[in-house]
Simulated assay, not measured.
Amino acid sequence: MSKLQVKPENHKIFVFHKVFEFASAKQQAEKKKLNAFGLFAKFNPLKRPTDETVLLKNQVLRYEPFWFISSRRNLDYTCAVTYAIPVHNPHVTAVEIKDTEASVYPVIRQQDKAKIDVQVIEQCHRSIEFSQYFDGLKRDMKQSIWSEYIKKFQHEDVQQVNLDNVVQPQLTVDALTSMVRAELQNQVINATSIEHDLEEISALYLYFRPVYAFEYHWSSADKIGVIEVDGLTGEIIENGHWFKETFEGTFTRDNLVELSAELASTVVPGAGTVLKIASKVIS
C-alpha cells in the first residue's frame, strides 16, 4: 500500500493580469448578445431574440482555474532473462564462463548458426514521466490553449488570491490524482521483482485567468443566456456559463498545502508503491 507525502514547496498559485478592461469586453458582448440563446433561437423565423427583448441582467469579472501537473515514476527492479550469445567458432562444443555457478554452457547449433543460452538477472532502473494541463472546470480544452496563455500573457506567483469572484475548481483531489496515477501505472514493466517504486508529483501549479461574463435575459421567451469574453485574448464565447461556485474570502497557498496534507493521511492502493505527493488539487 502507498503512503502520500506532501512537498509544500512545490505548490504554487499564479494569477494572470487582465489585458481587456470591462468597458471593452462589454462592448464586444453587446454585439453578440442575440447569439447567447443558441442557433435554434437565432434562426427561428417565428420567435427570435431582438435588441429590444434581450437586456443585460448581470455582469462579472471572474477568475477561472486551470492546472499544470508534472509527475514522475522511478523504478528499480530486477528481471530474470536468458541471453542468447552467438558463438562464431564452428569447432566449439561448450563455453566456460569463470566465476559463475553454471560455468559450462553447451553450444546449441541450428544449421549454420550457434549460440549459448546464459541465465542472467538484469538490474534495471526506469523513469516514467507525465505532465499535462487540466481545465479546473472539467471542460474539454486543447492543451495548447493553456501553454499559449503562459507564454504570451503576464502572470505572477502569489501567496494568496483575494480577488472577487474566484471560481472554485470542479476537478477534485481524488479525480486528478487518479488520472495522473493511471498514466504512470499504465506503462508495462517487465520485472521479476520490483525493489523500489516511487511516484512523485513534482509540481502542481494552479492558475487563475480573467474571464468576463455577461448574463442576458430574453424577456419574450423568458430565457437566460451568457456571453463570455476572455480577459486575455478577447475571444468571445456565445454559449457561455454562469459559474456560481466561488471562494468565500481569500484563498491562499497554505490552503492548497492543507488540502494536500489531508490527502496525505489516506492510503492509496498500489503494489508497494510509495506515492510521494509534491502537490494535490483542491477538493
Rank of each mutant, 00 (worst) to 15 (best):
E9D: 10
D76G: 09
E200Q: 12
M1G: 10
V6K: 06
S202K: 10
Q132H: 08
L61W: 13
E228D: 03
F66I: 00
K26I: 00
S127C: 09
F153E: 10
S220G: 00
D112C: 03
F68H: 12
F153G: 12
S147F: 01
K32P: 07
A182C: 04
I194H: 11
K33S: 07
G38V: 00
I189R: 03
N58K: 15
T273N: 07
E122T: 07
P210W: 05
V60F: 08
E52R: 14
L61K: 13
G225N: 03
I85T: 09
R109V: 06
A191T: 01
C79F: 11
R48H: 14
D174I: 02
Q159W: 04
L184N: 02
T250C: 11
V229I: 14
K142S: 14
E30K: 10
N44T: 04
H155V: 08
P210D: 06
E235Q: 15
E30C: 05
H17V: 05
P65N: 04
N10T: 14
I189L: 09
F40Y: 13
I201C: 09
I189T: 07
F243T: 13
F134D: 04
D99Q: 09
H155S: 15
A271K: 11
W218H: 04
Q27S: 08
K26V: 01
L75V: 09
V104K: 15
A94L: 02
C124I: 03
N44S: 14
R62T: 10
K3E: 05
D99Y: 12
P49K: 03
E156P: 12
H217L: 05
D197Y: 01
